[in-house]
């Protein structure tokens, strides 16, 4: 009798310590789960704290709408309008070129291509996505920049146009992959119904499958925008890097390259202003992310 009471107490104690251990482990995993949230908060906090002072000191109007960036001049000016406009122009150009090409390729791969060709092409697109951006930059420097100089007879090929072409190639894989996924998910019955009603295969692809996958395709475009606006190294290598207002054959600096090109040697207000540029870029990206999430959510529904 005594024996069993003792063992019962022992079992209870073991149970309790086991429960405590379970609770601790639960806590550890909760902490691990919250790491991403912590990282996002940390990044936001650091960018705001280090980015705001310069905006205040320079004045928001002079900072955002100033057309001249000359931080080392006798009378320094810190206008980032050229960077904002160059980033927007470069991204818009890449989207204008890249989306039609990527979209058409995606429809072909998802609907028309035989499965073996699709496999090979998807492998090729993955390779395109995996190539490091400095390799794109290098090829752009050696092929594109001299090519533009000769073709358009301009003094220097390192220009917005070169950046647009490089970005176009770099966003292609994101657009193709995401669009193919969306198009593959269109229910077979939709297409069968359209074919049965007498539409041709091509009419079915573009008037039934594509509209059905439009949220996914929109998400693909937004993803492309995010990629293009955030790219630094490849743009740095081909865009010439002078703080000019954007023009197709003008040497330009993007928001990303503005941060990267002066970070190494800047100090004081100039360095702080670079953090402010990063903050502006971050805000752009957050806006794009929110849009992307909106489309992805709709796609899921």
């Amino acid at each position: 009798m005594k024996q069993s009471v003792k063992s019962e107490a022992y079992a209870q104690q073991r149970m309790k310590s086991k429960q405590r251990m379970e609770r601790i482990i639960h806590g550890v995993f909760l902490l691990l789960g919250l790491i991403t949230v912590g990282c996002v908060l940390l990044i936001t906090l650091y960018l705001v704290i280090s980015g705001l002072p310069a905006i205040v000191e320079i004045g928001p109007v002079d900072f955002f709408l100033g057309q001249e960036w000359a931080p080392t001049a006798g009378e320094p000016s810190y206008g980032i309008l050229p960077f904002i406009l160059s980033s927007v122009a470069g991204t818009a150009g890449a989207i204008l070129l890249g989306v039609p090409i990527g979209f058409m390729t995606a429809v072909f791969l998802s609907k028309m291509a035989p499965s073996r060709l699709k496999d090979v092409m998807e492998g090729a697109v993955s390779l395109l996505a995996g190539i490091p951006s400095v390799v794109y930059g290098l090829v752009g420097m050696m092929v594109l920049v001299p090519g533009i100089r000769k073709l358009f007879n301009v003094p220097d090929g390192a220009s917005l146009l070169a950046a647009i072409v490089v970005l176009t190639v770099m966003i292609l894989p994101s657009i193709i992959k995401m669009s193919v996924t969306a198009l593959d998910a269109v229910p077979r019955e939709y297409e069968d119904a359209s074919l049965a009603l007498g539409a041709t295969a091509v009419e079915t692809y573009f008037r039934v499958s594509v509209p059905a996958a439009r949220s996914g395709i929109a998400a693909a475009v937004v993803l492309g925008v995010g990629r293009a606006i955030g790219e630094a190294m490849a743009v740095m290598m081909v865009a010439g890097n002078a703080p000019n207002m954007p023009g197709l054959f003008e040497s330009v600096r993007f928001l990303t390259t503005a941060v990267a090109s002066e970070m190494a040697y800047s100090s004081g207000l100039q360095r702080q202003a670079l953090f402010s540029i990063a903050l502006v870029l971050f805000l752009f990206i957050m806006l794009i992310n929110a849009t992307l999430n909106f489309f992805l959510k709709r796609e899921k529904e």
């Binding site: 990044i43 955030g230 630094a232 990303t256 941060v259 990063a278 794009i288």
Partner: peptide
Amino acid sequence: LSGIPSII
């Protein structure tokens, strides 16, 4: 996190 550009 996966959308933030590497320069940031």
